[in-house]
Write a protein that binds this DNA or RNA. Structure first.
Lengths: 126, 126
DNA sequence: ATAGTATATGAGTATAATTGCATATACTCA
DNA sequence: TGAGTATATGCAATTATACTCATATACTAT
């Protein structure tokens, strides 16, 4: 179900249902997606809110990126991650999980509050 | 996020989002849910279509049952499994995955065809 | 009772996922 | 250029998951 296209060195692996579900099936990654609802964030913001190691944060983000659930953009020394709405068009259930389910989870609410505090009182970036 | 209620010996663990996603994030279990779209099936039917070992089939079914995605009912020597629509009301994204995504997957289409053949030409049960 | 069938489970193995530490890379700013 | 910051990645340890084989349990029918 995965499409692998070789164009010179470029390798594109189209995410399929199981890979997307595997990427979603983790507490930390769900919390990351919840944080990204409000807009893009850099690795250090996420790291601070979730209180997990930088390398771990980076790996979780990469897992979501490989599944095409998020995309990244480098701006000076920071890498900003944001939700990939193109994939949500193809797999609408992802939007439903992020928009409808996240709000019900207590940890997710607290994460958003903590994010606001961190944003207010001097972030690592920007 | 899990609610654990002790009433005498009864233990009820309410399935939460991550557990449901973990239960869904597997090829064989997605194929099982696809087969159950048309109605209840016993273990041997599923085993035959997916071409996996009986013990493995039983464990996958248990994983889905613990996540409350399916329910089981014993009828004489067979155990019939079916979709748990109560959970789908609580988590509508599951319905969307099963109804909208399964149909797009080739293996799932073939599984349904094979199931019809097995049902037609003498099943193990009933 | 006994043999046969359906399902569940314990034990062991193989593989995959998560994590942390140390380090490499990329970028900025003085 | 050199120091500092942000992010990614190699490696190793730990844990979780999937799978198989053998066996136990539950039920049916003779």
């Amino acid at each position: 179900m995965s499409i692998i296209a070789y164009t010179h060195i470029l390798v594109v692996i189209s995410a399929d249902l199981v890979h997307i579900l595997k990427a979603l099936a983790d507490d930390n990654r769900l919390r990351i997606l919840n944080l990204l609802r409000d807009g893009e964030l850099c690795v250090c913001d996420i790291e601070a809110v979730l209180c997990i190691k930088q390398s771990n944060t980076s790996r979780h983000l990469n897992r979501l990126k490989v599944a095409e659930i998020i995309v990244s953009e480098k701006k000076s020394q920071w890498v900003y991650y944001r939700l990939n709405h193109e994939t949500f068009v193809k797999f609408p259930f992802i939007s439903i999980i992020i928009n409808d389910e996240m709000g019900k989870i207590n940890v997710c609410k607290k994460d958003l509050e903590l994010l606001e505090k961190i944003k207010a009182s001097g972030r690592c970036c920007d």
